[in-house]
Design a protein around this nucleic acid. Structure first.
Lengths: 188, 188
DNA sequence: TACATTATCCTAAGGCCATTAGGAAGCGGG
DNA sequence: CCCGCTTCCTAATGGCCTTAGGATAATGTA
């Protein structure tokens, strides 16, 4: 019987692809086994469980997002950096909704610490360097930024802005402006 | 055989309770059948499907949230109204995480239109009455507010703020301040 | 009260999914 | 060449959702 040549990485890649096209909740070992023309239990040679597979998608998404974020932030500051980082999140979520959903998965503490998650906080903190936010307020501002980015992307992805004018691009632009204002006049 | 006295409402109430205590993803017809001491297919006399049940939890949550929001907004304006409405979302999500998760479920257009969803936009719009946001900017601001509220609550619920200082209450307070600033200096 | 209707509940059965156990077969190193 | 590791298989278990069709309790009516 010819081998299918499955590796953990190829599996995760295919799973991420499936998540983006069919929805994260459609990711299953069964679906992947069908995709690779293989029996379901065969996949257990590569991943520990269905949960393990989903966690790996999350780690992939967090890493891809962090890479793009770092690239976007390079050489930018202030409002430019803010818009660039926000744009990365938004664009990634629209291009890869399944991966983005995976990235919101709760991770156990060790996994989270070893993930690209910390890099995300660092990126938000880097954006703040372009504003005069007091040191003691940095964490608050990071949380505020993260919340708004995630919230907007999440609502947009859920289709919340689909059937009402004006189009989402304009609202996004305004949201970035509003964040810029809030950071420039950070309350203390 | 004694009847269990199940009604659709009691079913949804129990499901919502289960969602809050065990997690929304633990809500299943099986679990509810066990809870009521009844065979699983019996539940189909009251709900059309598992999806129908979850949708009803979402409608319940949206309605409860809207009721509390309306009550909190009564007699308040400006920053007070902003903080009150935000507090309703945050407190509800912390007290009823399962219901809050249900409320984020995508609804088909008719169901959404008949739900309490529209009341939520109205509440956000009511908050804006306390600020000088131009009419053409109202939708942008509504989306911005909704995104930040939801984003913050969502991250907090996922445990994102659990293991880092300072505590989430302070960050929340700052987030409300930041929103207030953004609305008072809305970019146009 | 007796009966018919309806709503509630049941068992049986089929399908999809995840997981474990244990066996066969490809593939590379010695 | 062949030993061993990895990959893959079948078989079996158990959980979930759903439909079909039958029995029974509650309700209203003659």
């Amino acid at each position: 019987m010819a081998r299918a040549g499955i590796t953990a990485d190829r599996l995760v890649e295919a799973a991420a692809e499936l998540a983006d096209t069919a929805g994260f909740d459609q990711v299953s070992l069964s679906a992947l086994a069908r995709h690779f023309g293989v029996a379901v239990p065969s996949l257990y040679a590569h991943v520990k469980s269905s949960h393990d597979l989903k966690t790996r998608i999350a780690l992939l998404a967090l890493a891809e997002l962090a890479d793009r974020g770092m690239a976007a932030l390079a050489g930018r500051s202030g409002r430019d950096a803010l818009a660039a980082l926000g744009g990365v999140y938004r664009d990634y979520a629209r291009a890869h909704p399944g991966r983005y959903a995976a990235a919101r998965l709760p991770l156990d503490p060790q996994t989270a610490a070893a993930s690209a998650g910390p890099r995300h906080s660092e990126m938000l903190r880097a954006v703040l360097r372009g504003y005069q936010v007091p040191a003691a307020e940095q964490n608050h501002a990071v949380r505020f930024l993260g919340a708004t980015f995630h919230g907007y992307v999440s609502l947009e992805l859920a289709g919340g802005f689909d059937h009402s004018s004006p189009d989402s691009q304009q609202s996004w632009s305004r949201a970035v402006d509003a964040l810029d204002v809030a950071l420039r006049h950070w309350p203390s």
